[in-house]
Protein backbone atom coordinates (compact mmCIF):
# COMPACT_ATOMS: atom_id res chain seq x y z
CA UNK A 1 0.00 0.00 0.00
CA UNK A 2 1.42 3.34 -1.08
CA UNK A 3 0.91 6.60 0.81
CA UNK A 4 0.63 8.62 -2.40
CA UNK A 5 0.51 7.95 -6.11
CA UNK A 6 1.34 11.00 -8.22
CA UNK A 7 -0.18 10.91 -11.71
CA UNK A 8 1.63 12.99 -14.31
CA UNK A 9 5.25 14.17 -14.61
CA UNK A 10 5.07 17.78 -15.74
CA UNK A 11 6.01 20.76 -13.57
CA UNK A 12 3.21 19.94 -11.06
CA UNK A 13 3.78 16.18 -10.72
CA UNK A 14 7.58 16.45 -10.57
CA UNK A 15 7.43 19.11 -7.85
CA UNK A 16 4.98 16.93 -5.88
CA UNK A 17 7.38 13.99 -6.23
CA UNK A 18 10.31 16.02 -4.89
CA UNK A 19 8.23 17.03 -1.87
CA UNK A 20 7.11 13.41 -1.37
CA UNK A 21 10.72 12.21 -1.46
CA UNK A 22 11.77 14.88 1.05
CA UNK A 23 8.91 13.84 3.34
CA UNK A 24 10.14 10.23 3.07
CA UNK A 25 6.75 9.00 1.91
CA UNK A 26 6.07 5.69 0.21
CA UNK A 27 5.10 6.92 -3.27
CA UNK A 28 5.39 6.48 -7.01
CA UNK A 29 5.17 9.03 -9.81
CA UNK A 30 3.57 7.55 -12.93
CA UNK A 31 3.29 9.23 -16.32
CA UNK A 32 3.42 8.29 -19.97
CA UNK A 33 6.23 10.82 -20.47
CA UNK A 34 8.37 13.27 -18.54
CA UNK A 35 8.14 17.04 -18.81
CA UNK A 36 4.49 17.58 -19.74
CA UNK A 37 3.67 20.74 -21.62
CA UNK A 38 6.70 22.53 -20.12
CA UNK A 39 8.78 20.50 -22.58
CA UNK A 40 6.99 22.20 -25.46
CA UNK A 41 7.37 25.80 -24.28
CA UNK A 42 9.71 27.55 -26.70
CA UNK A 43 11.10 30.20 -24.37
CA UNK A 44 10.47 30.48 -20.66
CA UNK A 45 11.12 33.94 -19.28
CA UNK A 46 8.92 33.93 -16.18
CA UNK A 47 10.16 31.00 -14.10
CA UNK A 48 11.77 32.55 -11.04
CA UNK A 49 15.53 32.07 -11.08
CA UNK A 50 15.56 30.91 -14.70
CA UNK A 51 14.72 33.96 -16.76
CA UNK A 52 15.85 32.77 -20.14
CA UNK A 53 15.78 29.13 -21.06
CA UNK A 54 13.82 26.74 -23.22
CA UNK A 55 11.25 24.25 -21.98
CA UNK A 56 13.65 21.42 -22.84
CA UNK A 57 16.34 22.97 -20.62
CA UNK A 58 13.93 23.53 -17.72
CA UNK A 59 12.81 19.90 -17.91
CA UNK A 60 16.51 18.88 -17.79
CA UNK A 61 16.76 20.87 -14.52
CA UNK A 62 13.64 19.05 -13.24
CA UNK A 63 15.25 15.70 -14.09
CA UNK A 64 18.50 16.63 -12.30
CA UNK A 65 16.45 17.65 -9.28
CA UNK A 66 14.61 14.30 -9.31
CA UNK A 67 17.90 12.41 -9.71
CA UNK A 68 19.19 14.07 -6.51
CA UNK A 69 16.35 12.32 -4.68
CA UNK A 70 16.62 9.08 -6.70
CA UNK A 71 13.11 9.56 -8.09
CA UNK A 72 12.34 7.42 -11.14
CA UNK A 73 9.22 8.19 -13.14
CA UNK A 74 7.34 5.00 -14.01
CA UNK A 75 6.62 5.52 -17.70
CA UNK A 76 3.22 3.86 -17.93
CA UNK A 77 -0.13 4.99 -19.31
CA UNK A 78 -2.81 5.31 -16.63
CA UNK A 79 -6.17 3.91 -17.66
CA UNK A 80 -8.37 4.52 -14.60
CA UNK A 81 -8.46 5.51 -10.95
CA UNK A 82 -10.94 3.56 -8.83
CA UNK A 83 -12.04 3.70 -5.22
CA UNK A 84 -11.52 0.69 -2.95
CA UNK A 85 -13.00 1.17 0.53
CA UNK A 86 -11.37 4.47 1.54
CA UNK A 87 -8.26 3.85 -0.55
CA UNK A 88 -7.67 4.02 -4.31
CA UNK A 89 -6.48 1.75 -7.09
CA UNK A 90 -4.50 3.44 -9.86
CA UNK A 91 -4.61 1.20 -12.92
CA UNK A 92 -2.10 1.41 -15.76
CA UNK A 93 -1.84 -0.72 -18.88
CA UNK A 94 0.71 -2.85 -16.97
CA UNK A 95 0.06 -2.68 -13.22
CA UNK A 96 -2.30 -1.77 -10.40
CA UNK A 97 -1.18 0.44 -7.54
CA UNK A 98 -3.11 0.60 -4.27
CA UNK A 99 -2.70 3.86 -2.43
CA UNK A 100 -4.09 5.90 0.46
CA UNK A 101 -4.15 9.10 -1.59
CA UNK A 102 -3.69 10.41 -5.13
CA UNK A 103 -2.21 13.63 -6.50
CA UNK A 104 -3.50 13.99 -10.03
CA UNK A 105 -1.37 16.26 -12.21
CA UNK A 106 -1.89 14.81 -15.67
CA UNK A 107 -2.25 18.26 -17.19
CA UNK A 108 -3.64 18.96 -20.60
CA UNK A 109 -3.02 18.17 -24.26
CA UNK A 110 -3.23 20.41 -27.33
CA UNK A 111 -6.70 20.61 -28.85
CA UNK A 112 -6.84 19.27 -32.41
CA UNK A 113 -8.16 21.36 -35.29
CA UNK A 114 -11.39 19.81 -36.54
CA UNK A 115 -11.96 21.16 -40.04
CA UNK A 116 -11.84 19.52 -43.45
CA UNK A 117 -8.29 18.58 -44.43
CA UNK A 118 -6.81 18.99 -40.94
CA UNK A 119 -6.15 15.28 -40.37
CA UNK A 120 -5.08 14.66 -43.94
CA UNK A 121 -2.43 17.38 -43.88
CA UNK A 122 -1.07 16.79 -40.37
CA UNK A 123 2.69 16.44 -40.85
CA UNK A 124 2.28 17.68 -44.41
CA UNK A 125 2.20 21.37 -43.63
CA UNK A 126 -0.15 21.32 -40.67
CA UNK A 127 1.72 21.21 -37.37
CA UNK A 128 1.13 21.48 -33.64
CA UNK A 129 4.67 22.46 -32.63
CA UNK A 130 6.22 25.63 -34.03
CA UNK A 131 9.50 25.09 -32.18
CA UNK A 132 9.87 21.60 -33.67
CA UNK A 133 8.74 22.04 -37.23
CA UNK A 134 9.09 25.81 -37.73
CA UNK A 135 12.56 25.56 -39.29
CA UNK A 136 11.09 23.44 -42.11
CA UNK A 137 9.11 26.49 -43.22
CA UNK A 138 12.06 28.85 -43.59
CA UNK A 139 11.23 31.66 -46.02
CA UNK A 140 7.65 30.45 -46.49
CA UNK A 141 4.28 32.00 -45.63
CA UNK A 142 2.49 30.44 -42.66
CA UNK A 143 -0.63 30.92 -40.58
CA UNK A 144 -1.08 30.45 -36.84
CA UNK A 145 -4.60 29.47 -35.83
CA UNK A 146 -5.53 30.80 -32.40
CA UNK A 147 -5.32 34.04 -30.44
CA UNK A 148 -4.08 33.15 -26.96
CA UNK A 149 -0.61 33.18 -25.44
CA UNK A 150 0.33 29.83 -27.00
CA UNK A 151 -0.61 31.15 -30.44
CA UNK A 152 1.44 34.30 -29.86
CA UNK A 153 4.41 32.26 -28.64
CA UNK A 154 4.20 30.14 -31.80
CA UNK A 155 3.98 33.30 -33.92
CA UNK A 156 7.06 34.74 -32.22
CA UNK A 157 9.00 31.57 -32.98
CA UNK A 158 7.85 31.61 -36.62
CA UNK A 159 8.69 35.30 -37.17
CA UNK A 160 12.33 34.37 -36.74
CA UNK A 161 12.38 31.91 -39.64
CA UNK A 162 9.46 32.39 -42.03
CA UNK A 163 8.58 35.10 -44.55
CA UNK A 164 5.06 36.00 -43.37
CA UNK A 165 2.98 35.03 -40.35
CA UNK A 166 -0.81 35.40 -40.41
CA UNK A 167 -2.66 34.99 -37.13
CA UNK A 168 -6.17 33.68 -37.68
CA UNK A 169 -8.11 34.58 -34.55
CA UNK A 170 -11.68 33.48 -33.88
CA UNK A 171 -12.67 36.41 -31.66
CA UNK A 172 -12.76 40.21 -31.95
CA UNK A 173 -9.31 40.67 -30.51
CA UNK A 174 -6.38 38.55 -29.35
CA UNK A 175 -6.98 36.86 -26.00
CA UNK A 176 -3.35 36.38 -24.88
CA UNK A 177 -2.60 37.89 -21.48
CA UNK A 178 1.18 38.17 -21.73
CA UNK A 179 1.67 41.80 -22.78
CA UNK A 180 5.43 41.51 -23.25
CA UNK A 181 4.84 38.64 -25.66
CA UNK A 182 2.04 40.28 -27.67
CA UNK A 183 4.06 43.50 -28.03
CA UNK A 184 7.00 41.55 -29.44
CA UNK A 185 4.75 39.77 -31.93
CA UNK A 186 2.66 42.73 -33.04
CA UNK A 187 5.61 45.03 -33.71
CA UNK A 188 6.93 42.63 -36.35
CA UNK A 189 6.25 43.70 -39.93
CA UNK A 190 5.89 40.06 -40.91
CA UNK A 191 2.76 39.65 -38.78
CA UNK A 192 -0.82 40.19 -39.90
CA UNK A 193 -3.64 39.54 -37.45
CA UNK A 194 -7.02 38.55 -38.91
CA UNK A 195 -9.76 38.75 -36.28
CA UNK A 196 -13.28 37.25 -36.28
CA UNK A 197 -11.98 34.53 -38.56
CA UNK A 198 -13.25 30.97 -38.41
CA UNK A 199 -11.11 28.29 -40.08
CA UNK A 200 -13.02 26.21 -42.61
CA UNK A 201 -10.69 24.02 -44.61
CA UNK A 202 -7.01 23.20 -44.99
CA UNK A 203 -6.22 22.35 -48.60
CA UNK A 204 -3.34 21.40 -50.86
CA UNK A 205 -2.00 18.60 -52.98
CA UNK A 206 0.83 16.59 -51.47
CA UNK A 207 1.48 19.39 -49.00
CA UNK A 208 -0.58 22.33 -47.73
CA UNK A 209 -1.03 25.21 -50.15
CA UNK A 210 -3.68 27.23 -48.31
CA UNK A 211 -6.50 27.63 -45.85
CA UNK A 212 -10.10 28.74 -46.25
CA UNK A 213 -11.74 30.77 -43.52
CA UNK A 214 -14.96 32.66 -42.94
CA UNK A 215 -15.11 36.30 -41.88
CA UNK A 216 -18.30 38.38 -41.67
CA UNK A 217 -20.20 35.68 -43.53
CA UNK A 218 -17.73 35.69 -46.43
CA UNK A 219 -15.40 32.87 -47.38
CA UNK A 220 -11.79 33.94 -47.85
CA UNK A 221 -8.54 32.19 -48.68
CA UNK A 222 -4.93 32.54 -47.58
CA UNK A 223 -2.12 31.05 -49.65
CA UNK A 224 0.19 29.51 -47.07
CA UNK A 225 2.52 26.52 -46.94
CA UNK A 226 2.31 26.04 -43.19
CA UNK A 227 -0.59 25.91 -40.72
CA UNK A 228 0.30 25.97 -37.03
CA UNK A 229 -2.54 25.10 -34.68
CA UNK A 230 -2.70 26.63 -31.18
CA UNK A 231 -6.38 26.54 -30.24
CA UNK A 232 -6.14 25.73 -26.59
CA UNK A 233 -6.03 22.52 -24.66
CA UNK A 234 -8.17 19.68 -23.42
CA UNK A 235 -7.79 18.60 -19.79
CA UNK A 236 -6.62 15.06 -19.17
CA UNK A 237 -9.21 14.29 -16.50
CA UNK A 238 -11.08 11.30 -17.97
CA UNK A 239 -9.34 8.81 -15.65
CA UNK A 240 -10.96 10.41 -12.56
CA UNK A 241 -14.18 11.75 -14.05
CA UNK A 242 -16.36 9.32 -12.05
CA UNK A 243 -14.65 10.20 -8.75
CA UNK A 244 -14.28 13.98 -8.65
CA UNK A 245 -16.38 16.97 -9.62
CA UNK A 246 -15.46 18.57 -12.96
CA UNK A 247 -16.59 21.94 -14.32
CA UNK A 248 -17.94 22.52 -17.83
CA UNK A 249 -14.38 22.72 -19.22
CA UNK A 250 -13.67 19.27 -17.71
CA UNK A 251 -11.33 20.90 -15.20
CA UNK A 252 -11.17 19.41 -11.70
CA UNK A 253 -12.93 21.62 -9.16
CA UNK A 254 -10.18 22.27 -6.62
CA UNK A 255 -10.13 24.23 -3.36
CA UNK A 256 -7.34 26.46 -2.10
CA UNK A 257 -5.51 23.48 -0.53
CA UNK A 258 -5.56 21.38 -3.71
CA UNK A 259 -8.37 19.15 -2.39
CA UNK A 260 -11.04 17.89 -4.81
CA UNK A 261 -14.63 16.81 -4.11
CA UNK A 262 -13.26 13.30 -3.34
CA UNK A 263 -11.43 13.08 0.02
CA UNK A 264 -7.95 11.65 -0.65
CA UNK A 265 -7.66 12.91 -4.23
CA UNK A 266 -5.74 16.15 -4.69
CA UNK A 267 -5.23 18.02 -7.96
CA UNK A 268 -2.42 20.25 -9.25
CA UNK A 269 -1.44 22.09 -12.41
CA UNK A 270 -3.22 22.80 -15.67
CA UNK A 271 -6.11 20.39 -15.08
CA UNK A 272 -7.54 22.27 -12.07
CA UNK A 273 -10.25 24.93 -12.36
CA UNK A 274 -7.83 27.53 -10.95
CA UNK A 275 -6.68 30.35 -13.26
CA UNK A 276 -3.20 30.59 -14.79
CA UNK A 277 -1.98 27.69 -16.92
CA UNK A 278 1.77 28.14 -16.56
CA UNK A 279 4.74 25.99 -15.57
CA UNK A 280 5.57 28.07 -12.51
CA UNK A 281 1.97 27.99 -11.25
CA UNK A 282 1.80 24.25 -11.84
CA UNK A 283 5.00 23.74 -9.84
CA UNK A 284 3.57 25.73 -6.92
CA UNK A 285 0.31 23.81 -7.15
CA UNK A 286 2.23 20.53 -7.06
CA UNK A 287 3.98 21.39 -3.80
CA UNK A 288 0.76 22.57 -2.19
CA UNK A 289 -1.24 19.51 -3.27
CA UNK A 290 1.48 17.20 -1.97
CA UNK A 291 1.58 18.94 1.42
CA UNK A 292 -2.21 18.58 1.62
CA UNK A 293 -2.02 14.91 0.64
CA UNK A 294 0.72 14.38 3.24
CA UNK A 295 -1.50 15.94 5.93
CA UNK A 296 -4.40 13.71 4.80
CA UNK A 297 -2.28 10.54 4.94
CA UNK A 298 -0.80 11.44 8.35
CA UNK A 299 -4.25 12.02 9.80
CA UNK A 300 -5.53 8.79 8.30
CA UNK A 301 -2.60 6.84 9.81
Amino acid sequence: MYDIIIIGAGAAGITAAIYAARANLNFEIISKDVGGLTLWSPDIENYTGYHNLTGIDLVEKFKEHMADYKINVKEETITKVEKKDDNFIVKTEKEEYETKSVVIASGSSPRKLEVEGADKFEGKGLAYCATCDGPLFAGKDVVVIGGGDSALAAALTLIQMTNKVYILNLTEELTGKDKALSEKVLKSEKVEVINNAKSKEVFGEEFVTGIKYEQDGQEKTLDVQGVFVEIGHIRNTDIVKDLVELNDKKEIVTDKTGATSQPGIFAAGDLTDLPGKQSIIAAGDGSRALLSAFAYVSKKG
Partner: peptide
Protein backbone atom coordinates in the same frame (compact mmCIF):
# COMPACT_ATOMS: atom_id res chain seq x y z
CA UNK B 1 16.26 16.90 -36.43
CA UNK B 2 15.79 20.55 -35.56
CA UNK B 3 17.67 21.95 -32.56
CA UNK B 4 14.54 22.76 -30.52
CA UNK B 5 12.43 19.66 -31.02
CA UNK B 6 11.65 17.70 -27.83
CA UNK B 7 10.80 14.43 -29.62
CA UNK B 8 14.13 14.51 -31.50
CA UNK B 9 15.82 14.64 -28.14
CA UNK B 10 13.77 11.67 -26.89
CA UNK B 11 14.78 9.56 -29.90
Amino acid sequence: TTPTCPWCKKV
